[in-house]
Simulated assay, not measured.
Amino acid sequence: MQAALHVIYPPQCISCGAPVTTDFGLCGPCWRQTPFVSGLVCDLCGTPLPGEDPGAVVHCDDCLTIARPWNQGRAALLYKDNARQLVLSLKHGDRLDLARPAAVWMTKVATPLLSPGTLVAPVPLHWWRLAVRRYNQSALLSKGVARLAGMEHCPDLLKRRRATPSQEGRTRDERFANLSGALTLHPRHVGRVKDRPVLLVDDVMTSGATLAAAAEACVAAGASRVSVVVLARVAKDA
C-alpha cells in the first residue's frame, strides 16, 4: 500500500518540494543548508561549542552568567539558514506536517536527558494567541517527542497568566522581565509534577526567558528535575 501511494504521491522534500526517497525528509541541498547541532554542546542550552568533548559537563558563556532554573537542555538545530525557514513555516505558515520530522530530530538530542517517569509538556500560548493562531506549535512538537520517547504527555501542564507582549526586539533583561511570573502550573495538574522529572518543549530558545519561567513553575510545584529541548537555538554566531 505504501509503495502504491508513493507512485501516486511521490515523497517530496519538506522544505523545497523536490523529490526525495523517504516521507518527511530533506533533499540533499536543503539538508546541507539546515544547521543540525552536533558535537560538543552546552549542557544547559544546547549551543554548539568549539573543541573536542573534554569528558565533563561544559557550559557556554551565557549559561555561565545566567542562572538557569533547569538541569539540562538540548537543541536540534541552530536558528539560521534553512532551519529558520522551517521553524517559521511551522509557527506561522500552517505547516503542521513539519512537526513530525522536527519531533524526530528533537527526540534524538533529548534522549540522554530522559529518565523513567518523565512528564513531557510544551511551553503554553495564552488563550487569546492560541485562538488567533489556532494551534500551539510547541504542543505539536511535545506530543511527537512524548510519543517517540514513550513518555507521558501533558499538553496543558502549564498556562499563561497573562498575554505577554512579543519578545522580539527586547534586550535579554527585558525578555526576562517580560516573562516574570507569567507562567504557572494548571491547578488540575499540580499533583502530576511533584517528585518526578519534567521535559519542557519549545520551538525556539533565544535568551531562555520563556523556558526559565516554565521551569520555575515546575520546580515550585516540586518537580525532581527539569530538562528542556527546543527545535532551534539562537546562537550568538548564528
Rank of each mutant, 00 (worst) to 15 (best):
P10H: 06
P11N: 08
C16T: 00
P19L: 03
P19R: 02
L26A: 09
L26P: 05
C27R: 01
P29L: 07
T34M: 08
T34A: 07
C42Y: 08
C45F: 08
T47D: 14
P48K: 13
T65D: 09
T65Q: 15
I66T: 12
A67S: 15
W70M: 02
G73Q: 08
A76V: 01
L77V: 00
K80I: 00
K80T: 07
L86P: 06
L90P: 11
K91T: 00
K91Y: 07
D94C: 03
R95L: 03
L96T: 13
P101Y: 05
A102N: 02
V104C: 14
W105P: 08
M106Q: 03
T107V: 00
T107D: 11
V109F: 09
V109K: 13
S115W: 00
P116A: 11
G117Q: 04
G117Y: 06
T118N: 10
L119P: 06
V120G: 13
P122W: 07
V123Q: 05
H126T: 01
H126R: 03
A131H: 12
A131S: 12
R133N: 09
N136Q: 08
Q137S: 10
S138I: 00
A146H: 06
A149W: 07
E152H: 15
C154H: 08
P155L: 02
D156S: 14
D156W: 13
K159W: 12
K159G: 12
R162F: 04
A163I: 00
G169V: 00
R172A: 14
R172C: 05
A177K: 14
N178S: 09
N178H: 03
L179E: 05
A182N: 08
V190Y: 09
V193Q: 02
V193N: 02
K194T: 07
K194Q: 14
D195I: 00
D195C: 10
R196Q: 10
L200K: 06
L200D: 06
V201M: 10
V204C: 09
M205G: 04
M205K: 04
T206L: 10
G208A: 07
L211C: 07
A214M: 03
A215G: 15
E216S: 13
A217W: 04
C218S: 05
A220L: 11
S224W: 06
R225E: 13
V226G: 06
S227G: 12
S227W: 02
S227Y: 02
R233S: 07
K236S: 12
